[in-house]
Simulated scan of single mutants.
Amino acid sequence: MARQNTLFKEAFNRYAAFLTPDAALPSEPEIAAQLGISRSTARAILMRLSDAGIIRWNKRQKIVLRQPTDADLFPEEETNSLHDIIERQFMLRILSDDAQPGMQINELELAREIGAGTTSVREFLIRFSRFGLIEKRPNSHWILKGFTREFALELADVREMFELHSASEFGKLPANHSAWTALTAIKREHQELLDGFDERYRDFSQLDEKFHLLIHGASRNRFIADFYDVISIVFHYHYQWNKAMARERNSRAIAEHLDYIEALQSRDNERIDKACRLHLSSARQTLLQSIPQNTNEEASDS
Rank of each mutant, 00 (worst) to 15 (best):
Y15L: 09
A16G: 09
A16N: 07
A16P: 09
A16D: 07
A17E: 13
A17K: 13
A17D: 10
A17L: 10
F18P: 00
F18K: 14
F18Q: 15
F18G: 04
F18L: 11
L19D: 08
L19Y: 10
L19G: 07
L19M: 13
T20E: 14
T20A: 11
P21Q: 11
P21W: 05
D22K: 15
A23G: 03
A23M: 14
A23E: 11
A23N: 05
A24Y: 10
L25Q: 06
L25H: 08
L25M: 10
L25E: 05
L25R: 04
P26H: 03
P26F: 01
S27G: 12
S27I: 06
S27W: 08
E28I: 06
E28W: 00
E28P: 00
E28V: 07
E28G: 00
E28N: 02
P29I: 07
P29S: 04
E30A: 04
E30C: 00
I31P: 01
I31C: 03
I31S: 02
I31M: 09
I31F: 03
A32T: 04
A32Q: 02
A32C: 05
A33Q: 14
A33D: 12
Q34F: 02
Q34N: 02
Q34G: 01
Q34M: 02
Q34P: 01
L35M: 13
L35E: 08
G36E: 12
G36C: 11
G36K: 14
G36L: 11
I37Y: 03
I37K: 02
S38D: 03
S38K: 01
R39N: 10
R39E: 09
R39V: 01
S40L: 11
S40A: 11
T41R: 06
T41V: 15
A42C: 08
A42Q: 05
R43W: 02
A44V: 05
A44R: 15
A44D: 14
I45T: 10
I45K: 06
I45V: 13
I45Y: 09
I45G: 07
I45M: 08
I45S: 07
L46C: 15
L46S: 11
L46D: 11
M47R: 15
M47H: 14
M47L: 12
M47Y: 10
M47K: 15
R48P: 06
R48T: 14
L49S: 08
L49T: 07
S50K: 13
D51F: 12
D51Y: 10
D51T: 13
D51M: 12
A52Q: 15
A52R: 12
G53Q: 03
I54L: 11
I55L: 12
I55D: 15
R56C: 03
R56V: 03
R56G: 05
R56M: 06
W57Q: 07
W57I: 00
W57G: 01
W57R: 09
K59Q: 10
R60W: 04
R60P: 05
R60T: 13
R60E: 09
Q61D: 07
Q61A: 12
K62L: 02
K62Y: 00
